[in-house]
């Protein structure tokens, strides 16, 4: 099943329609006797940053792994553009335009940015040479440079190994790569966890620019400030369930922490600081 093409940048500024790009309904995941997800609902809209927050063990990672094809749900439905889909592997999700940026830099440090951008999806030359697997390096380099420019990522040197770049720039390459291939949804699992202050800021700016291109961004983060800075909508998980879906206006870190820990459920006696 092939979903319709992603929203274009022009429609991105319009308020999200009723149909989410990606929607999960009643997802249940059991590992043996442990029930990690107990009927989670989730939705992500095109041109929006949806933050997914929750305390450790709330089921964030499990949910993202299910939505990106790494795990298979025990029960529940995943809908892409309103149609039921099943992912048997991450490549199924890739094929439908769903990409993931991992917190540990998923780049090959010894290779150039363009080799990293096209990792596993290398372009080959046309004709006979291509049949033998000869790479079209010039084209990959050009298309990478265009992608970096589009997302306003400036790299010191596009022809040197990634190792010579800063951690933030390396992460930018990883993010640009996912954007280049994501037509629908990008999951970002703690993309700023390994970065410093300036680099974090840059990365968050990049996150905003990405959703302006019309894809849906799902940000998983422990950092409530980051979340409040970039997210349009915040989905809160607790103990394997979604317990809140908040629009990001006039809410405070305390509200988020309260929702995550259950302090807002009136009788909770524990308060965890983020």
């Amino acid at each position: 099943m092939q979903p319709p093409p992603a929203d274009t940048a022009s429609s991105a500024s319009v308020a999200p329609g009723p149909v989410a790009v990606l929607e999960a309904r009643g997802i249940v995941k059991r590992f043996g006797h442990v029930e990690a997800l107990r009927g989670v609902d989730f939705e992500a809209h095109a041109g929006e940053v949806t933050a997914l927050i929750g305390d450790n063990g709330a089921g964030k990672s499990t949910l993202v792994k299910i939505l990106s094809g790494v795990y298979q749900a025990t029960a529940g439905n995943i809908l892409l553009d309103g149609c039921n889909v099943t992912f048997n592997s991450p490549s199924d999700a890739h094929a439908l335009g769903i990409e993931t940026v991992y917190q540990d830099l998923s780049v090959a440090p010894d290779l150039t940015p363009s080799a990293n951008m096209f990792m596993g999806r290398e372009l080959v030359l046309p004709g006979l040479l291509g049949k033998f697997g000869f790479l079209d390096n010039a084209r990959m380099r050009r298309e990478s440079a265009e992608a970096f420019q589009r997302l306003k990522v400036s790299l010191k040197d596009i022809d040197m190994p990634i190792a010579s770049l800063s951690g933030g720039q390396r992460q930018s390459v990883a993010i640009c790569r996912s954007i280049m291939w994501a037509k629908q949804v990008v999951f970002m699992d703690e993309p700023t966890a390994a970065l410093g202050v300036v680099q974090t800021r840059r990365t968050l700016e990049l996150v905003r620019r990405i959703c302006d291109t019309g894809v849906a961004v799902v940000l998983i983060s422990h950092n409530m400030r980051d979340v409040l800075e970039v997210a349009d909508t915040i989905e809160v998980l607790r103990l394997g369930r979604r317990i809140a879906r908040l629009r990001n206006n006039n809410i405070s870190i305390q509200d988020l922490v309260g929702a995550m820990t259950g302090a807002l459920d009136s009788t909770a006696d524990e308060q965890v600081t983020a």
């Binding site: 993931t100 998923s106 010894d110 290779l111 990792m119």
Partner: peptide, 15 residues
């Protein structure tokens, strides 16, 4: 080169 540089990343990239 990719496998030698970061096998986990290569695996995630579908290699």
């Amino acid at each position: 080169f990719l496998v030698g540089s970061n096998p986990e990343a290569a695996r995630r990239a579908g290699i």
